[in-house]
Amino acid sequence: MSRRKRGLTSEEAELWGRVAASARPIRPAHAPAPDAGSRPKPKPVHSKPLPSDFHIGQMARPMTAAHDLVPALEERLAAQPVRIDRRTHQQLTRGKLRPEARIDLHGMTLAEAHPELIRFVMTAHATGKRLVLIITGKGKRSDDQGPIPQRVGVLRHQVPQWLTQPPLGAVVLQIMPAHLKHGGGGAFYVYLRRAR
């Protein structure tokens, strides 16, 4: 059902006329035109022709496949301060010292490896051992199909972090990548503090 528009009565029209006459416009209906001579003329844009061998983005650095903002594990371990004496450090880097105990975390999940690592390191410290070897493996490289990059070797990256956190951080003096004859990039030397 549609409504019909009703017109204004004579009283309403008279009242509207008085209201409209007393109102002031917000903007004047006819603004004075600016003087044509006072407005600056826009300067013509002269673009230089581009060389024929120019390509947009040719000077940009090439995009790399990996955008890893965290330094590599080797860089982080190399950047840590050396807390052991120089001679022991040199012997460790050359693979001259034999670890007194070792644990192999190959094939374990993070949930399985963490308690085993704590038990092993705390037991080695309690029995007076100074140098232990922790084998994590290098990790398997799988196809990374997602937009978020995945680290290769989850245990390899997690173990050094666990060794610096409580309760292990209190007994660990130095963490170093193992020499090739003891596992290379898939293992770590852990030098323990003296048991008190």
Rank of each mutant, 00 (worst) to 15 (best):
V19Y: 08
A113P: 00
D85Y: 13
P32C: 05
K5P: 02
E14V: 01
R61S: 08
E12W: 00
L15G: 03
D35Y: 01
P32R: 06
P99Y: 05
E74D: 12
R87T: 06
L69S: 12
H114K: 15
L92K: 04
R18S: 05
V19D: 04
K96H: 09
L50G: 11
G95E: 06
R24N: 11
T64K: 15
L105G: 01
P51S: 10
P25L: 15
R6V: 02
H125E: 07
D35S: 00
E12G: 01
R86P: 07
D53Y: 09
A21W: 03
A21I: 02
F54K: 07
Q91L: 07
D68K: 10
Q91H: 08
G107T: 04
Q58F: 10
A72S: 15
P99Q: 06
H55V: 14
A60H: 14
G95R: 03
L77R: 06
P99C: 03
A65D: 07
L15K: 05
W16R: 00
A111Y: 05
R27H: 09
P25N: 14
M59N: 06
M59L: 13
A65P: 04
S38L: 02
S10T: 01
R6C: 03
R87C: 09
S10F: 00
I26A: 15
H30D: 11
Q90R: 15
H125N: 11
S47Q: 14
V19L: 14
L97D: 05
A124T: 07
E74P: 02
L73M: 11
D35C: 00
H55I: 15
R87K: 13
A21H: 07
L69G: 14
R76Q: 15
P42C: 04
P34D: 00
A124S: 11
S38I: 00
M59H: 13
A111D: 14
R6G: 05
P81G: 06
H106L: 08
A113L: 03
R18F: 03
P81E: 10
L15R: 07
A111M: 08
L69Y: 11
E12T: 00
G17K: 01
M122A: 11
E116N: 08
A66N: 06
G17D: 03
K43I: 05
S22E: 11
K41G: 01
K48C: 12
S22T: 12
T9C: 03
R86M: 10
A33T: 09
L8K: 00
G57P: 04
A65K: 13
H106F: 02
H55D: 14
R94E: 15
L105K: 04
H46D: 09
Q91C: 05
R18E: 05
P51T: 09
K5V: 00
I84C: 06
